[in-house]
């Protein structure tokens, strides 16, 4: 009877030790999994890209000089032409597509990308999509308001 009781006590003791170790392990795992700061790097790159690309001076000239991509999107929204008669949307389309290709197609870590341009929430032109749009994506968003219009750019890279 006493022997059984001792064995029971030992079992309980062992169980408590296992329990404590399990809790320590869980705490460690929680720290190990939440400690990593992976979010900012790709986001930072996509943000810099979008900011820089939208300031690109296009070939479309208006009355106040050559338009940058963000300004040209307003011209495209209003379906206005450039001074040389070229279609603003066509130049916007070509410039953005080539900019995206030049910047991202050589990046080995990038499997695909997408860029959507909206005017007041409606698609201004078909989205620029390349490669494999996997489940893992990072992105950036820029918005440019003008009286009566809000142009939005949403860029995502997939890895």
């Amino acid at each position: 009877m006493i022997k059984d009781k001792n064995a029971q006590e030992e079992m309980v003791g062992f169980g408590i030790i296992i329990g404590i170790v399990a809790i320590i392990l869980l705490i460690f795992l929680w720290f190990a999994l939440t400690d990593r700061d992976e979010t900012s790097l790709d986001d930072y790159k996509t943000e810099s890209f979008l900011q820089s690309a939208l300031q690109y001076t296009t070939e479309c000239e208006g009355s106040n000089g050559f338009y940058e991509i963000n300004e040209l999107s307003f011209e495209c929204d209003k379906r206005r032409s450039c001074l040389n008669g070229k279609d603003s949307c066509e130049i916007l389309n070509t410039t953005i597509r080539e900019t995206l290709e030049a910047a991202w197609k050589g990046e080995s870590s990038v499997k695909g990308y997408s860029l959507n341009i909206t005017s007041d929430g409606n698609e201004l032109m078909p989205a620029f999509v390349w490669g494999n749009l996997t489940g893992s994506s990072r992105g950036a968003r820029e918005e440019f308001p003008k009286p009566g219009t809000l142009i939005g750019f949403v860029f995502k890279i997939y890895s």
């Binding site: 810099s48 820089s52 300031q55 690109y56 001076t57 050559f66």
Partner: peptide, 24 residues
């Protein structure tokens, strides 16, 4: 590195204008 806008002063028909391009 990181993406930047690379700007310079360019001229057309004798007038100066800002020319910005995409760089890394």
């Amino acid at each position: 590195g990181n993406f930047v806008t690379l700007c310079r002063k360019a001229s057309k028909d004798g007038d100066s204008y800002d020319k910005c391009e995409l760089a890394k």
